[in-house]
Write a protein that binds this DNA or RNA. Sequence first.
DNA 1: AATGAATGAGCTTTCATTCAT
DNA 2: CATGAATGAAAGCTCATTCAT
Lengths: 194, 194, 194, 194
Amino acid sequence: MTPPRSDPDTGKRDVILDAALELFAERGFHGTAVPLVAERAKVGAGTIYRYFESKEHLVNALYRREKQRMTAALADGFPFDQPPREQFHVLFERAIAFMKGNAISVRFLELHHHAAYLDAESRALEEHGNALVEAAFRASIAQLAMRDLPPALLVAIVWGVFDGLLRAWSEGRLELSPAVVAQAEQCCWEAIRR
Amino acid sequence: MTPPRSDPDTGKRDVILDAALELFAERGFHGTAVPLVAERAKVGAGTIYRYFESKEHLVNALYRREKQRMTAALADGFPFDQPPREQFHVLFERAIAFMKGNAISVRFLELHHHAAYLDAESRALEEHGNALVEAAFRASIAQLAMRDLPPALLVAIVWGVFDGLLRAWSEGRLELSPAVVAQAEQCCWEAIRR
Amino acid sequence: MTPPRSDPDTGKRDVILDAALELFAERGFHGTAVPLVAERAKVGAGTIYRYFESKEHLVNALYRREKQRMTAALADGFPFDQPPREQFHVLFERAIAFMKGNAISVRFLELHHHAAYLDAESRALEEHGNALVEAAFRASIAQLAMRDLPPALLVAIVWGVFDGLLRAWSEGRLELSPAVVAQAEQCCWEAIRR
Amino acid sequence: MTPPRSDPDTGKRDVILDAALELFAERGFHGTAVPLVAERAKVGAGTIYRYFESKEHLVNALYRREKQRMTAALADGFPFDQPPREQFHVLFERAIAFMKGNAISVRFLELHHHAAYLDAESRALEEHGNALVEAAFRASIAQLAMRDLPPALLVAIVWGVFDGLLRAWSEGRLELSPAVVAQAEQCCWEAIRR
DNA sequence: AATGAATGAGCTTTCATTCAT
DNA sequence: CATGAATGAAAGCTCATTCAT
């Protein structure tokens, strides 16, 4: 029942990913030297190559981990049975909460979105998130709660607003107090509701 | 009447900037080697350094050129005397038109937003664009045409939507037909109008 | 008794300095490419930058090493309590011995004397050597053994003669047999003695 | 009788050599970029290549010009018929005068002495100067005015002292007042006289 | 004849990756 | 297993030289 082994380095892979996350989010993939990741992870440079075949494999592993964490944070236990407005409220709150607790992850995902060095699997994951939200939106449209517009358009609008909020917040141009978040949610809802 | 000059002095400086634009937008700053820019510009590698002190000076010059082009496209002759809804319409149309005609520029600006190698002047330009829009929005709020919310929030929402549209469009998830654009505009207006 | 180690860790740093010494003495600082130093040291080009921040740091480290070696060879255990003529004899012998055993070092020091890329610490070391000899000469003047002339003049004369001998010898115009050395010493002494 | 032609650019070659002299003396051959020489000479970069086949030809031409100027300054109209002490006095005065009026030339000659890029003709000129002085010294030895030592040794001593004086003077460690020059001359004479 | 913009080989330096310890 | 010193290919940049004007 307990982890079968000593465990001291069970986390070494994650320690490396954590270090890479901070640095890639800050300086980009090409702007980050592998030895720097090693130093930040307090690990020998060679060690990284025990866990990842190459620097590209490292970003891809990281991209997947973060994308999945974010998708899980938004989708796990999502109340599909609630009315559309309530579903939207939950989605919005979760997104804001994830953003505030994982600013670096979000910055990383945004910066590496559609990068040339992401492989097929990572790209597939990109689709996946969108598809989930699109499905939910499609249901809301069917229930006549959202405008009858291309779901891709509605998704683009909502993601776009999140992105705008993230940037304004992380650049210090906007404070995300509960009041502002509530207002932002209402604005966003007005944009897409029927 | 003069010899059909192949392209005598279109300004080699601009040829270099054009090549850099494509490559930086595609592969990022650190992912683009200077000799690659030279090759794309059909210019010797050393020539770039006759026009730009360093690779960093090159991105900054490019960033300013593109930011100014975009700001001009949105702001030149802007109808500040029209009613807010009309002003918003003009802004939206201009933004979409610029986006469609200059997808690479917009992708470049987005990717290099707030990068560590942008200098003070480039950053000042970043502020400038936002400030212009914020001022217009503030006026619309005063006229009771937009919700009385922090202007930074309204700006974030509108920029965010543009960004979402750009991405969905450039990744082929959304077609920007006149009808879709009109719908998107109406959505966006609903988000911020009073 | 231990394995006849080929040269395990003679200090790669010193191996690099040795290679740089030969090349800088022969071709000058700007005339010597770093990969050439690497090749001569049988080391990868990048390795040099693990031991020295830059090519300039490399020359400076080398300059200090050689200047200190030479200063030590002349000054360590110098018989300040002996009569001036004897002190001069010791100085002369030591200088000639160092020159014959370290022609490349002396050539290097001479060639890089007062070069623009020497830093403050290296320049301070230049002063130091002169100051030592000047002090000794001042004492000899006080003992009425040397002419009462500006010490800087006496030092210039003696160093100059050494330099002349070095050049004539290393260009093959003059053999430094014991007899010639003895004669040179006597000539030099005649120049400065009271 | 007058120069046959317009003459405006009769001097262009010399203007280039003058510029090169300053720069090579200050920064060395490899440390000086040809376009810099052009700029200093107020001449187009290409112009230099009308007058000199290559950078190496340029240094060699310069080396010869300066070596010849110096040899002429010392040897032209030399009073071979005067007694040795007087000859030495003239030589010494001339050398000091040349040094003071042509510090840069002397620094250049010293720095480029025996450099790898000097060609056979330049090297031959190096010999020539020495040979002249050696001949004079040989005569003085024959007249029993100088010690019966290898002429090369005597020459090395005298050149060395000049060099020492030049350095001490140009580094500001020694002032070359008439009194000091007279003292230096006497010292030097004592070194070699019988 | 003179120019100086243009070039590309080569320089200094960095960094993804390997491998002896 | 983990390390980090070592590597060399490739990056950013400079400069001797050429050539269209």
